[in-house]
Design a protein around this nucleic acid. Structure first.
Lengths: 337, 337
DNA sequence: CTGAAAGCGCTAACAA
DNA sequence: TTGTTAGCGCTTTCAG
């Protein structure tokens, strides 16, 4: 029924172990033997059994993608990242298990242990804020499980992928400055996300570069959700001197700002310029279309997975690669009133 | 290091086979023995190895979620479904592999075979339009792999979960009728989705029930994406007599309609009522908030997975369960002008 | 209702 | 560079 390693060995006239070596890309096989075996595998349509490999050896060809599912707003971000990860897995014959983790309680410990012990997960890919969740990192280290991070805060010790979000945020705000805005507000994201810090830092950098004062009144706390964007905007609209531009730390909050502007009777971009960050599909589904920073989530997922696999295959220590950002200038920003 | 079945057996004073029987919930074990074994498993923190179980037996405790990733627009729908599926898996100690399938070409055959052979997938959960993709169903049947469908077109032969979308669409349109609208347009979704047919049928039902004529001019083809909604709306706006209400087959297209209305200078809902279907997060992020039909995607994912597991555990033939819809009346619909 | 033996398909640790 | 011998942790026969 099923073609086994042994069958390939018999057909080739070598021992099972040699076939195994070829399968695992070990270097100590004579090239001619190697070719023979490879050919036989191909023609017999041999497909190794992950279960057997996992049981006998230490490998499972399984990676897990870990993500936080407490707050769902960014579901399209996660979907894109996952898509990229799967793409990379495909290329290296790995399989991926999706694993949402609730950060509260001890639940995640159980789940991580289950992944590692039960399934012999070889490695882990994580999205923020899990990337910097100490108890989790600790546990992974204890288990000796390599991990690759997407946009981690602590970049020194990480492998994975990142973007210069601070620079991107600065560029975004500089764009507002160039349009003549002088009262520029910022809506901050959830505190434990590196993204919130970087984007805020970029905002400050831009103000400084433009010689504009930093006014705490114009900085409001949000939490990355549409609703929090609405609330933050209302707060800003209650100020004696309204900002002429608002830079929200992500698109969902920017959408909230535009909602609140509508509610308040402010016309975007005539009375108020609005911009966000991420370039989610939402950005082009708003009226007017949202100026934002494009973050290549899909590519980031793919690159993070590829880095992990480099490590798993012993090809190197793994790197933290940086992807470029791109400003998407659309109709939600215009010259200051 | 690892606690094995054998360890539990030794601790309990029974044979490994008996422990195995308890583990697999076989009925032929004396209750007292069963309790003893269960207690030992608990206290020793025994966790069976899926790899070993998969290798020795026919089970793998792995299910796959298959989805189409040609068109990404509904990524939040997929994310919600996946969340529900994972929830159900968790409850029954199953693991899930996410598996995007490209419907074009023979690629999906390879992937399905890989899933079945390599990983001994026990069952499959599918979302539209895969649920009714004949070559795929054919292949699954050949492999003897049980599958559970979410909103399949062919309901007779399916297990899984569905919603009475036709009834829901009818109710949605009846709402417009009650608001006094008489020229009600409909934007249809992608042709091979059952959803498109049902929602269109419900639209017609409502017109008939209200004694309104069915005018083909007011029915425009879309493809579930925001952009297609914009195009469809422009088409409708070019008509000599504009509709006073537009029922789009999903929220993304409804958002497109609102975008186009803005572009055209039409005020929603004063000049035009707009409603959608699905109640994605987008619905409450538009201005004005979108009237739509709530579809409990997360629950649907969970229920579909639970039905599959009923089958896998030999508890029954599996059912096609129906979930209720709910109209979400918001501010995008109002009395006809 | 319970147990003993055999083996799932592969790799580890040796040897040659 | 290649082969041999075990055995991964569990389930399947088949007996009792």
């Amino acid at each position: 029924m099923r073609v086994r390693l042994e069958d390939v060995a018999r057909a080739t006239g070598v021992s099972p172990k040699t076939v195994s070596r070829v399968l695992n890309e070990e270097s100590s096989v004579k090239e001619s033997t190697r070719q023979k075996v490879l050919a036989a595998m191909e023609s017999m349509n041999y497909r190794p059994s992950p279960a057997a490999r996992g049981l006998a050896g230490s490998r499972s060809f399984l990676v897990a993608m870990l993500y936080d599912n407490n707050d769902n707003p960014a579901s399209t971000y996660l979907a894109e990242v996952q898509d990229g990860v799967l793409d990379a897995c495909d290329a290296h014959r790995y399989s991926m298990m999706a694993c949402p983790l609730r950060m509260r309680g001890q639940d995640f410990i159980r789940r991580v242990d289950a992944l590692v012990f039960d399934h012999h997960i070889e490695g882990v890919i994580m999205t923020p804020p899990l990337t910097d969740y100490a108890p989790l990192l600790q546990r992974l280290k204890e288990h000796g499980v390599p991990h690759s991070s997407i946009s981690p805060v602590h970049r020194e010790a990480s492998i994975g992928v990142c973007m210069d979000e601070q620079q991107a945020a600065k560029a975004m705000v500089m764009h507002l400055v160039e349009l003549g805005h002088r009262r520029i507000a910022h809506i901050v994201g959830i505190a434990n996300h590196g993204a919130s810090r970087w984007r805020m830092a970029g905002y400050k950098d831009a103000l400084a570069a433009a010689g504009l004062p930093f006014d705490p009144q114009y900085v409001v706390q949000g939490e990355f959700s549409f609703g929090s964007g609405v609330l933050a905007a209302r707060e800003l609209f209650a100020l004696p001197e309204l900002p002429t531009a608002i830079f929200a730390a992500n698109d969902d909050m920017a959408a909230g700002v535009m909602w609140a502007a509508n509610e308040r009777g402010l016309k975007v971009p005539r009375d108020l310029s609005v911009c966000g960050f991420d370039d989610t599909p939402l950005a082009t589904q708003l009226w007017p279309p949202l100026t934002t920073v494009r973050q290549p989530s899909r590519d980031m997922g793919k690159l993070a997975a590829l880095q992990l696999m480099e490590v798993l295959r012993g090809r190197g220590p793994g790197l933290l690669v940086q992807v470029p950002y791109a400003l998407q200038l659309r109709e939600s920003t215009a010259a200051a009133p």
